[in-house]
């Protein structure tokens, strides 16, 4: 199991499009994924869950991934957040 933290850096926050991008990514992997923010914990493969977090710019998300391809998944998630989902920072 890997645990890590990421910050939301794109200005518009984790709105519909980035949420969909994230879920598309996590769904590719076999590993389980949970995301936690301010005491709320959701399944990272559920767009409903991700959008419920309503994470805005500057907020921090705690990830917990667990499974056979956890390393690759964690790496790709970190990259995605770092790039600001391809949106202006």
């Amino acid at each position: 199991m890997i645990e890590f933290e990421v910050s939301v850096v794109n200005r518009a926050g984790l709105h519909t499009r980035p949420a969909a991008t994230l879920v598309k990514l996590t769904s590719k992997y076999k590993s389980e994924i949970f995301i936690e923010k301010d005491g709320m914990r959701i399944n990272g493969k559920s767009i409903i869950g991700v959008m419920t977090l309503a994470a805005e710019m500057g907020s921090t998300l705690n990830f917990e991934v667990n499974g056979v391809d956890e390393n690759e998944m964690a790496l790709e998630i970190k990259e995605l957040f770092k790039s600001g989902f391809g949106e202006p920072l």
Binding site: K37, M40, A55
Partner: peptide
């Protein structure tokens, strides 16, 4: 239920989201 959860994590985008 879902909308009240999103509103809980309120930010300036949530109104747009709620409409969607």
């Amino acid at each position: 239920e879902y909308i009240s959860l999103v509103s809980l994590n309120d930010n300036n985008l949530s109104k747009v989201k709620i409409n969607d």
